[in-house]
Structures are given as structure tokens and as C-alpha cells.
Design a protein around this nucleic acid. Structure first.
Lengths: 203, 203, 203, 203
DNA sequence: CATGAATGAGGATTCATTCAT
DNA sequence: GATGAATGAATCCTCATTCAT
């Protein structure tokens, strides 16, 4: 899990190769989980030899970590984007339907749960996950404060932080629900989520 | 993953031994995850030889399944209990603080995430988890319908089912949040959660 | 593989128990081979606990040895009986059909091959098998000498011993053929075997 | 037992390695039997790690099957060669001595019995053995038909097939006799075998 | 840069055997 | 006599990792 990316003559090519591995890892991790996916499986998917992967990553754990980092960044980006709309509060309430289906139908659910489980056990992964979460929340917090100020709502740190936790929990929880009850009536779920969002965001 | 509990002369002792194994498994699974925990590790924690465990469980997978079943039952029971109070709607809103801390501070979070991750990949575990969820929701649904009827609220199947999903998502999401941001300001989270609950339950 | 049958208070009962085990072993060995049959499997078939078997046999190897001894005795007996008919030479030629079907259709073929394979590898079993063979050949030899003398044929030791080997080889070989070519045309096989027997016995 | 030979960059080297394993297996199987020989034992004899063997064979069973295939091919080849002489009928009678010593003294007897025992219980091995036997008999049959036709003897399918069975049984039976009575008087055995062969082949 | 052959430790599981009851 | 709970060594097999080429 060391930070040292090895020296390569052609850094661009090296970066490409790293990405190849991470993309392959995505496929394999999705199919078999972090521990179920073997280096050989990943190397085949990446179109390079197992041995060569070790020129780009110190260990399998390093791949997992890099993969999680990347994934978690993507999620963060979405969260930031989503939060940079005009009137984000209204936007979030209005777009409840989109958010709910996104969280319930995504093909990344298995991966997301895998990441969370790993984070709850592997300190290195936990650090990556928490760090990304920290950054996302920072962006999200700024946005909420501005938006709530415009609506004359309490925008103190604690209030906003509590609000963020609850909102994110609601969406992450939908990921979890997807594996418990894939047949839930979506429109009704959306209605309830919208009620919750409105209540939270505008109080 | 057969249900096949082997015949034992002394069923009480056997039950005790099974429980010993499950308790040991809890410890090890918490520490190392389902796949990281070795049978030898579990056997040491259970105070019996690895070979002997196979007199009580068909395989490691069977241990995981039994363990999940037990755990999931416990969660179900809590959900049912919680749902059998006098005016459950009001009760849930009032007790938001208790529920939130319960979900954020529990030492079972790692296990819960482990179970969810496993369920998203292992069909046998998924079946156990979904079955328990089905039963919990059935109890929960009955309760919500009665309670909402008393409050003159829409108690149709779809509405209630959507409501349930959102409420459960909120709480399960709090489990997930616990590993991302252990330092969240609890009172503010509670306030937002209470807002959300009130909005959902009473609409 | 020690010779010491343990002391038992009631030797008759003990003998009965031993036989129970050997009968069970027959079933299991037939089904799974010597090494594929587990003590637990045998104990279940014998209707007694695995542990208790060790009051009658020192080890699994001792069961195999005793089993082989018994089986080999049975074969010997048949050989002796078969050899005590009036004009055994003529008898053998005439009864070629019976002998061939006996060797080709028996349900003991698997066991016989198992025994031979074990004997070729396990010196203790080899000793048992050779000893029984020695005794059978002794009876068989006496008979052949008398019969051939009556027919004015050379009855010297060497000639008779060579003859015996070839005759027995022919029949044992039929056991082997049974697993290679179960569909061989029996009548034609019988005809050839009869030709061979006549030629050998009466030369 | 899949036919699945893995892809290797250097097929020659791979073939060499496979053969190394099969040779080592021969040694170990001879010494300890198929089930008594451990993968670790084989790997030591093959001069490579146990794990590496799995780059060339899917499983221990696959090694056994490949080994049997090879062995059984060798035996088939001998049978075919032996049958392609000028006047094969006369040749077989004349060469009785060679055939007998070959079958009685070979150091492959233990292996042969092991193979037969395995075939009588393991369907995959039985298939390999039967298939090879089928091919050998086909060659042998053609030869016998031609040779007997030249001698004006009945060369109908059934007669020849029955004859083949009996002849092969006689030789295979000699393998079996070798472990029962290593001290049999060879010349006398040869004499009897010759009598039998002449009687069978020329009737 | 790239390969894949090779290692060896560690995994789950089975099973002959022992022994307290 | 009889049980079956318990052991622990051995088995087959997998896989992250290394290294000669």
C-alpha cells in the first residue's frame, strides 16, 4: 500500500497501463469481489501478464486501494456536480426520482458494498474512503450553506453537517435496500424520499 | 448450504457447540471478514479442533449462512419489537435519537456490511438475507397500515411499501455513514433524521 | 496388522461382531474401494460406532487384511470343490461355459481387482494372498496329478505346476477382461476357452 | 478430467514438463498406488513445486487419467506390433516364451493392476481404458481375420472376437499370476500357454 | 518493457484413531 | 461392551508474488 509509484521511462504509457489494470480490476471485482478475484483473473482481463502488473502496483492490496480511490473519486464528483446546480435544494427535491433510480438500479451496487465492507476492516482502505468522503462533504457543505442562506435557513456548521449525514445516509441506504428488496415499488419510494428530502433540506 | 444438522446424541450439547462456533465466528468475521477468517482461526477461537467443527457444520459456507441467519434474525426481532409500540408513528419520531445512536455506534457495523457485501455476491447468503427481510417487512407493513389508518393516512400497499423502503434505507444508510464519518455531530443528525421521519410517516 | 485378536469375554459374540464388520466392509469396499471407504462409512454399515470397531480390529489395514483373507478363502474353497469332482479334467472342459460366465459376470470383480492391486503394493496383503494361493494350488495340484495319472499323462511336479498357472491365469484374466469389454460374445469366448482348457489339461 | 491442456508459450518445454510429471507419477504410483501417492510426493519426484504441477494438469485425477492413457497406449502399441508379423498365428505360438516372460516379469505389473482396479471403480478411467482396448482389439481383429482366412479357418466376427477375449485373458491373467506365485516354473508355464494358444488360434 | 514459469505458504476439508463416559 | 465427541495430521488445491529470460 506504499505511496511510491514506481519510476517509469514513459510516464504517460505507465499511466495508461495502470488504468488498464484498474479497468480490468473493476470488471473482476464486480464479478467476484475483492478477495474472490485472483491476480491471474485480473491480469487476463487487463491483457497483460500477472507478473507485469507488479511493475505498476506493489501488491494486490495496492490495486484495491487505487481502485477504491478512483471509484470513490467518481462518486465524489457526482456528489459535487449534483450540488452545483442553480437552486440545489429545489433541484434535489425535484430530481428525487432520478437519484432514487440511480441508487437502486446501478450496476455498481455490489462494488460499493464491497468497498464499504473492506473499509470497515482494512484500515488502509478506510483511510482512502474517509479522505474522499471528507472532500466531498467539504464541497457539499459549502453548497448547502450558500443555498440555505439564500432560503433564510439556519446554515450553521453543525446543522448543515447533520443534514448532510442524514441525506447521504438516505441515498447510501437505498443502495443497501437494492439487494434486500429489488421489487420495491419505485414511485412510492420516490414519493417518500422526496418528502424526506424536502423536510430535511428546508427545515 | 444444506439445512442438514447432523444427528447428535445429546442435542443440547450439540446446540451449545454450534453456538460456540457461531460466537467464535462472530469474533473472527468481525476481525477479518468472512473470507479472511480461516477455519483454523475460527476453530482456535471456538476452543475446538478445526476438524470437529465439521461435525456441526457442513462447510465454512454453512457457518457463514448460519451466522448470517442468526444475525439477521436478531435485526428482524429488533425491527418487529420497535414496531409493536402503542402509537408507533409518534414513537419512531420521538425516539429518533435512540435509533440514530443505535445505528451509528453499534459494534456490529463491520459485520453488517460484511453480510451485505456477501449477499451482493453469494446467492445462498442473498436468499437468507432476503427471506429475513421479507418477514421483517411483513410485520412492519402490518404495523404501519394499522397506525396510518388510525391517523387517517393513506394505507394502501404501495404507499406503505415505498415508505418502508425509504425509512429502512435511512437507518441502514446510517450504518454506512458510521464508517465514513465517525465524527458527525449526533444531535444535528438526529434532528434531520427526525424531520425526515416525521415527513415520511405522516404524509 | 498384528495377529492378536483381542481378548473378549464372550468370544462367540466377538466373532459375530467381527463378521458384522467384515460384511459391512464388503459392501463398502465394493462400492468405494479399500481406500475410498471410510471407517465411518463402514461403521454405519456395520451398525456399530466407529470407535467400537477398534475393539475388534487394530486398524483399518487389519480390516482389509481380514477381509482379504476371508475372500481369498472363499475363492480357494471354490477352487478345491471344483477340483474334487469325479473326472475333473473332463469336468472342467465340459463346464467351460459355467466357469466363463462365473468369471465374467460376477459382482465381485471390482473387489477382486482391488485385492490384487492392494497385494501388488501392500506386503501384508501380498502375504495373505500368496499364502491362500499356495494352499489352493496345493489342493489343485494333488487333484491334477491324480487325474492326469489316471489319463496316463505326465504328472510331474513342474508340468502340473506350469499347467496350473496357465489355467488359473486364463480364468483370472477373464475377470480382467470383464471390465475392458463387457460386450464380448460369450458363446464364442466359451468355445475358445474350452479349446484352450482341453489342450492344456490333456497334453 | 477435462482434455484442457493449458496454453503455454513454449509447447515443447511444456510437453517436457508434462512428461516429467508423468514420469514422476509412474514412480510414485508404482510405489504407493494412485490414491496413496500424494501430490507433494509426486511434485518432489518431478523436481517441481506441487503448485506448479497444476499449470500442466487440472487435478490429480487428470494426472492419473493422462498417465493411464499413456500407459494403455503403450500396451496397445505392443499388442498391435505383436500382431503385425508375417504369419501371426504361428508367430504367437512360437513366441510363447517371450510373451510369457514379458507378462510375468515386467516391472509394470503393479501399475497395470492399479489401473485395472481404478477402472473398475472410476468411470473416467474406465472410459480411457475401454477406449484403448477398443482400438487395440480393432487392429488385432483385422489381423486375426486375415491370418485365419489364409489358414482356411472360420474368420467370422463372433468367432474371432471370442478368440481374442480368451487370448488376451490368458496374457492378462499371467500378470495377475505374477503377484500370486512369482516362483512358478516358467518353462512349464510356457509349454501350457503354447498348447492353449495353438488350440485356440488354429481351431 | 514484458512474460509466464515457478514457488511455497496457506486454504478448506477429510479421516483414521483415541478416549472419557 | 459401546458410544461418538474430539483430535490433528495429511490431502488436494489456489494464489499472491518473484525472477530469469
Amino acid at each position: 500500500m506504499s505511496n511510491n509509484e514506481k519510476r517509469h521511462n514513459d510516464p504517460d504509457r505507465a499511466q495508461l497501463r495502470r488504468q488498464q489494470v484498474l479497468d480490468a480490476a473493476a470488471t473482476c471485482f464486480k464479478r467476484s469481489g475483492f478477495h474472490g478475484a485472483s491476480m491471474s483473473e485480473i491480469s487476463k482481463a487487463a491483457g497483460m501478464s500477472a507478473g507485469h502488473i507488479y511493475n505498476y502496483f506493489d501488491s494486490k492490496d495496492a490495486i484495491i486501494a487505487a481502485f477504491v480511490e478512483q471509484n470513490v473519486e467518481r462518486v465524489s464528483a457526482i456528489l459535487r456536480d449534483l450540488a452545483q446546480r442553480a437552486d440545489p435544494l429545489k433541484e434535489m427535491v425535484d430530481d428525487a426520482e432520478g437519484s432514487v433510480s440511480e441508487h437502486v438500479e446501478s450496476d455498481r451496487i455490489a462494488l460499493q458494498l464491497e468497498i464499504w465492507a473492506e473499509a470497515s476492516r482494512n484500515p488502509a482502505i478506510a483511510a482512502v474512503v474517509r479522505d474522499a468522503d471528507l472532500r466531498s462533504r467539504s464541497d457539499f457543505r459549502n453548497l448547502l450553506k450558500a443555498a440555505r442562506a439564500r432560503h433564510q435557513l439556519d446554515a450553521s456548521d453543525d446543522v448543515v453537517d447533520g443534514l448532510m449525514e442524514a441525506v447521504i445516509a438516505l441515498f447510501h441506504g437505498l443502495h443497501v435496500r437494492a439487494i434486500h428488496n429489488p421489487g420495491a415499488p419505485l414511485p412510492a419510494v420516490v414519493a417518500s424520499v422526496r418528502n424526506a428530502l424536502r423536510a430535511m433540506l428546508f427545515s
